[in-house]
């Protein structure tokens, strides 16, 4: 079955991020000036305005900062998923990422719940970083 949901619009700013996702790596810009790890990508640091960055690969672990459960499909591609969970995940390295929580029912999601990245290869060139409850093995590690 063909994938019928919107795909990311890749541009010069976000290309490195989506290429990383294809390799199952969460790549962020880290400011060489102040160490701030930022998302979305930008040509200078929103905190110190420094333009130099290094690549930081997130471990893909964080917490649910907040979430919302969709009961209406605003795009036909999501109609079969209702109800589904959109969340902002605060990664341990700092960035807040808008994503989906998968692998549990919406009513099981709570704020501050530990989560880990769950890669979803949706089409040939695009992989989406979604998140699922942190497995206990990871939690102990």
């Amino acid at each position: 079955m063909s994938y019928d949901k919107p795909l990311p619009r890749i541009n010069a700013d976000n290309q490195a991020f989506w290429e990383g996702c294809r390799m199952h790596e969460l790549r962020f810009q880290q400011c060489k000036g102040c160490g701030h790890v930022r998302w979305p990508p930008s040509d200078r640091c929103p905190r110190c305005h420094c333009t130099e960055t290094r690549r930081l690969i997130s471990k893909g672990i964080g917490r649910v900062y907040t979430f919302a459960v969709y009961h209406v499909a605003y795009h036909p591609g999501f109609a079969g998923d209702l109800p589904y969970t959109v969340a902002v995940v605060a990664l341990d390295e700092g960035p807040h990422l808008l994503t989906n929580i998968v692998g549990c029912r919406p009513e099981q999601v709570v704020c501050d719940m530990p989560v880990e990245v769950a890669w979803e290869d949706v089409v040939d060139r695009i992989t989406l970083p979604k998140f699922r409850p942190l497995s206990s093995a990871e939690g102990l590690g």
Binding site: K5, P8, N14, A73, F78, L98, L128
Partner: peptide
């Protein structure tokens, strides 16, 4: 924008 990728709209 790209939030639509995750079904986040409006």
């Amino acid at each position: 924008g790209d939030d639509a990728v995750f079904g986040h709209f409006g």
